[in-house]
Design a protein around this nucleic acid. Structure first.
Lengths: 135, 135
DNA sequence: TACATATTTAGAATAAGTCTAAACTGAGAC
DNA sequence: GTCTCAGTTTAGACTTATTCTAAATATGTA
């Protein structure tokens, strides 16, 4: 995705595309990792003339989550990870390396309607834990 | 479950059933909430003649997770919750109250084998976010 | 009983994230 | 152009969740 598109995306979600927000959003959209706030700060600081502050990283990540541009991912204790892939998908955690892989939504049955009338499901996340087989 | 059974359970999993561990395990097994370490400490302290220390609560919870007696649950940023229900089940988070409900495993299709040969799935957790409908 | 080992403890230390108040930025009013 | 105001960014203090450390306590075995 190009800068211009990302700018439009932010605008369309009601987030003013400041330089700091742009650089964070671009990083998240282009990476396939599922970085923590600290990792975002580190990556983005090296790629920018002048570093941006920790608070801005946290503020921006929270704004982008609120706006629906990115998602929080909870797979391990104490850490929040961020994911700019907001299409229908789930996660596989390789328990050896800790790496997180995306699992396309169409690889598993849809569960939205499975719980019956009592539950109005807004969204759901599936986290698989396991090992990657050598192929 | 009775104390004696819980004692046997711990022994069978290789965890020495000290008084502190027993009281924590009993609380977790009898509650239907999904408490944080802090909540365990609070609950258990009131129910015991002399309080037990924060470090013991964390140590014990980690030991019980390691031994497979309880599970960690990740549904919200920064907090680890604990669940003594280790039967096949998933979680529903009521986004209004934050309450977590168990969803029996047989309410959703089994996903263990869905991912294909590349992924060796040890376990998976499904977290539904939504609202409870009035019935 | 004595010794080795495991457990518990209080409190210090660390890590992740939020808050605060001041400085900065940029769009519109004059 | 420059004034103003709301929104944004910043450094650093603070809070919260969790782990670490080293001493004290309990347990099991010779």
């Amino acid at each position: 995705m190009e800068s211009q598109e990302i700018e439009k995306l932010l605008l369309s979600k009601g987030v003013k595309p400041t330089p700091q927000r742009m650089v964070i959003a671009e990083f998240l959209i282009h990476t396939h990792s599922h970085p923590t706030a600290e990792e975002v700060l580190e990556e983005v600081s090296t790629k920018l003339p002048c570093a941006l502050s920790r608070a801005t990283v946290y503020n921006t990540l929270n704004s982008l989550v609120q706006a629906g541009v990115i998602q929080e991912v909870f797979t391990e204790p104490g850490k929040t990870r961020y994911d700019a892939n907001i299409s229908d998908h789930h996660h596989f955690v390789d328990v050896k390396s800790g790496k997180i892989l995306d699992i396309p939504g169409d690889m598993v049955p849809k569960l939205q309607e499975q719980l019956g009338a009592k539950f109005k499901v807004h969204s759901y996340q599936i986290t698989f834990y396991g090992e990657l087989n050598e192929q």
